[in-house]
Design a protein around this nucleic acid. Structure first.
Lengths: 296, 296
DNA sequence: CTAATAGTGTCTTTAAGACATTATGAA
DNA sequence: TTCATAATGTCTTAAAGACACTATTAG
């Protein structure tokens, strides 16, 4: 016996006659923070090339925020998930396909877009720089890789009777040749026994569109948080890599140097030995490893 | 000199003439998984009462999924964030206010609601059971606390050439007196060098509306993941608590017993000693502590 | 040979697991 | 007095930090 509602309808009947109300709905965009670990040039044949953490931005050609830089992204269509939309947009805008993707956070401040009500479901993506097709972004859109740096400018913690208030200012710098984009993001945490209120505010944002400075900061903090206890860093390294290369990736993400011996002890679990060696290194050649993804 | 777009408009002019297109937009709901740690009754005056992990569900009075149980939640309004919507709905539906809230994930399968295109921005909430007003949910809506259990039924891992495939089946059980809701959720992870595809599928879901079994499973796994390295468990404990109580909370979340001595060594950092003691315990009274939230 | 990195050994420090011992109050 | 839990001590095991030492190559 099928259940009927207060109008005497079965579920099938209800759905057949159902018409969505005409209340206002938000547009939903999928935005992506794409990181890569770019190998720098090194003149000294003996020295090892350094790595830099980079992020992809797209120059806006129209209002609002005309001529500023924005994350790759676009609106979600009715026949796809936000993740599918993110992948589709990335492919359309940059030609990049098949990469690591992870949902970050949904930003929903009603006024984050001056045009209308737009939520942003944000994703973090990681690519090995060798996979990037340099000729990508060849349509009208101008996509460029920016060096990323996120520094803590200041932290202020006040203990209260039943919690604390902490205010941290971050300086986000994005650099591409002569283009330097700078933003200050304030992270405020107010903890009481009634929960915690965590808030990101953009204090200043120069050359970045919308609230994207906030999203980028969120992504970097997430990446830093996850890198030490997951295999996420493997996504930034080529098929064959040395343990020093992997360590460099950790160092540019965490923005600090690590000791070699303990690093190798811990993270050699992520690498499978091969019988190949790096060549023409000007010093003792290092063994090449393959990725050993952590199962489960 | 203000920049103008290809139509010769400044940003101000552009925004003044801007009209949103009439493409389809999703409805966005904010849904909440609210947990509490309920103290059971204990007959033996010497024995310590046990705790159970519980979760709040609301009985659906209309189609679709009539007479099944659903998470508390509702549609987001144009003047609020998803978080504000979650809080508003919770207050309206249950009378619960001022609690710990954390965004979980945005579920966006276009067919997750049979009526129309609805995304769910899901939240996890934690409350001390002492804060719950039992007479809540006094309007038409019927809100009830269900005992929660999530067991891994089966894990199957296959290593592949460049990654692995893992399939884990979870059994989610929700019980309230004679009402037993059961669901099987399959978590599939396919890892290749081109990223990881993580997918939750509902194999069966009895008595739970929409994809809420998936959301609940996601929430429990998140809670388990975060409890050991954050102070999140403090949200489930009253103002004054014993270390054994706190340990019980960890045990019901992790679904396994912990050793007392190492637990105290590690988590006494989350507790501030008071000079009060638990009373009428039928054995040595234990010291009461206050919450010491981890700053930063 | 040399500069620069590869790779390992080992001592110290810290934290976690395991379990035993002592302490204490209500009935 | 007894039962059940409180609270702590300590031995073991494992991991992380710090740093030194040896190995190896292109030029």
């Amino acid at each position: 016996m099928e259940p009927r509602d207060k109008n005497g309808l079965t579920e099938k009947e209800f759905l057949a006659q159902y018409r969505p109300g005409d209340y206002e709905r938000p547009s939903v965009a999928a935005d992506m923070v794409i990181f890569t670990a770019k190998v720098c040039k090194e003149e000294n044949y003996r020295k090892l090339p350094k790595k830099k953490l980079q992020l992809l931005l797209i120059k806006r050609g129209g209002h609002p925020y005309i001529n500023t830089w924005a994350l790759s992204g676009g609106f979600v269509n009715p026949d796809e998930t936000t993740e599918q939309a993110a992948k589709r947009e990335l492919l359309e805008e940059t030609g990049i396909d098949n990469i690591y993707l992870e949902q970050l956070y949904t930003f929903s401040d009603p006024h984050r877009d001056p045009r209308m009500w737009v939520m942003s479901c944000s994703y973090m993506a990681l690519v090995d720089s060798g996979k990037i097709n340099v000729s990508a972004g060849d349509d009208a859109k101008c996509a460029e890789w920016f060096d990323v740096s996120l520094k803590t400018e200041n932290t202020d913690i006040n203990e209260t009777n039943n919690g604390f208030t902490s205010v941290t200012d971050y300086i986000l710098s994005l650099q591409k040749d002569n283009d330097l984009l700078k933003a200050k993001i304030r992270l405020t945490k107010i903890r009481t026994d009634n929960g915690i209120d965590t808030k990101y505010d953009i204090i200043s944002s120069d050359g970045l569109a919308f609230d994207h400075a906030k999203i980028i900061t969120f992504a970097i903090l997430r990446l830093r948080g996850k890198v030490t206890y997951t295999d996420i860093a493997l996504n930034l390294v080529p098929e064959y890599f040395t343990l020093t290369e992997l360590q460099q990736v950790y160092e540019i993400i965490l923005d600090r140097e690590l000791l070699k011996a303990p690093f190798r002890r811990k993270y050699s679990t992520l690498a499978e030995e091969t019988d190949m060696f790096a060549k023409y290194s000007g010093h003792r050649p290092s063994k090449l490893f393959r990725k050993k993804w952590l199962a489960e």
